[in-house]
Amino acid sequence: MKNKFELLARWGYAARGIVYVLLGGLALASAFYGAGQQASNENALGNLLGAPFGRVLLSAVAVGLFGYVAWRLAQAFLDADHHGSDAKGLGARAASLISAAGNATLAIAAASLALGAGGQGGSNGEDSMTAWLMGQPFGRWLVGAVGIAIIGGGLFQIWRGYSKKYQDRLSIPAEHAGKIHAVSLFGLAARGVLFAVVGVLFVFAALAVDPQQAGSTTEALDYIRHLPFGRILYGLAALGLVAFGLYGLVQARYRRIEAPDLRQAAAALT
């Protein structure tokens, strides 16, 4: 480890990976047994809390998620990955900022549960954000644009997996490359498809002028479940979420991280 910021970043990738493995596990249980808890981040965190030493484990995940948020902010504002300031680089850094905002919500939920304060469930965050956007001038167009952007992000995830571009920042031992690629490709593709479905739900919300039509990964999974052959597709999506969680653990171990010193980062962000 070069410094404590790198430790936080790796801890963050691992924590996010664990959440996705738990989320996929809930969805798999639902796919095989047809009942059980809804596959949501909040239920995944709640299950972790119920494990032996659950509060300690959940606290560790919460700290890791806050570390991941800090790393994404460093990518966005300090250009930790050296994307540059051209249009492509600014787009990548903007994506890091959006990821930081989304994962901050998850980190706060984990910390709240660990502290015994409870957490928000369901898709209330998506509903409230969509309702706020819908209330702005040209609101339905804004919601539609968000949906199209999310669809684009999902397609980009699939492309990153298929093209092996995700490996550009990984240092994977040759003897493990094949297995890691299979898992990573499946995970990225599954998450990309779910992202695209979330984007479609936002577009539906824009067309219907109804914020409640928008949703999160939970609603995307429900949508897939009601398609023809939905149980099979739902099971594949659940396996994909587990695979994406394992990909997060791969990032925690093998990603190249050029992290700034914590004091330098704090000075630059203030």
Rank of each mutant, 00 (worst) to 15 (best):
M1C: 10
E6C: 10
A9Q: 00
R10S: 06
Y13D: 02
A14N: 00
A15D: 05
I18Y: 04
I18E: 04
V19G: 10
L23W: 11
G25R: 07
L26D: 02
G34R: 02
A35S: 15
G36C: 08
Q38H: 12
N43P: 01
N43F: 09
A44D: 07
A44V: 04
A44N: 09
L45I: 05
N47I: 06
L48G: 08
L49G: 02
L49N: 07
G50E: 13
A51N: 11
R55F: 02
L58D: 02
V63F: 08
G64I: 00
L65V: 01
G67I: 01
V69I: 05
W71C: 05
A76R: 09
L78M: 12
L78E: 02
H82P: 00
H83R: 14
G89M: 15
R93N: 11
S96A: 15
I98M: 15
I98N: 03
A101S: 11
A101C: 14
A101P: 05
A104C: 13
A104N: 07
I108D: 01
A111G: 02
G116E: 08
G119I: 13
S123N: 14
S123I: 02
G125V: 04
D127Y: 14
T130A: 09
T130P: 08
W132M: 10
L133T: 00
L133I: 01
G135A: 06
P137G: 03
P137T: 07
G139F: 06
W141Y: 15
W141I: 07
V143N: 01
V143F: 00
A145S: 12
V146T: 04
I148K: 07
A149R: 06
I150L: 10
G152Y: 03
G152T: 00
F156R: 13
I158C: 09
Y166R: 06
Q167V: 08
D168T: 13
D168I: 10
D168R: 13
R169V: 13
R169F: 12
L170T: 00
L170A: 04
A174M: 11
H176Y: 12
A177R: 14
K179D: 05
K179G: 12
K179H: 09
K179S: 09
H181D: 11
S184G: 08
F186N: 00
L188N: 04
A190E: 02
R191C: 03
G192K: 09
V193R: 04
F195L: 13
A196L: 07
A196R: 06
V197K: 05
G199D: 00
L201M: 12
F202P: 09
F202C: 11
F204A: 12
A206C: 06
A208T: 15
Q212V: 13
A214F: 00
S216V: 04
S216K: 13
T217D: 10
T217I: 12
T217Y: 13
T217P: 03
E219W: 00
E219S: 14
A220L: 09
A220N: 10
A220F: 07
D222H: 11
Y223S: 14
L227M: 14
P228Q: 05
P228H: 07
F229E: 05
R231W: 01
Y234M: 07
G235L: 05
A238Q: 07
A238K: 04
L241I: 06
V242R: 05
A243L: 14
Y247S: 05
G248Q: 04
V250K: 01
Q251T: 06
A252K: 01
Y254H: 09
R256E: 10
R256H: 12
A259M: 02
A259V: 00
A265D: 03
A267P: 07
A268C: 08
L269H: 09
L269V: 03
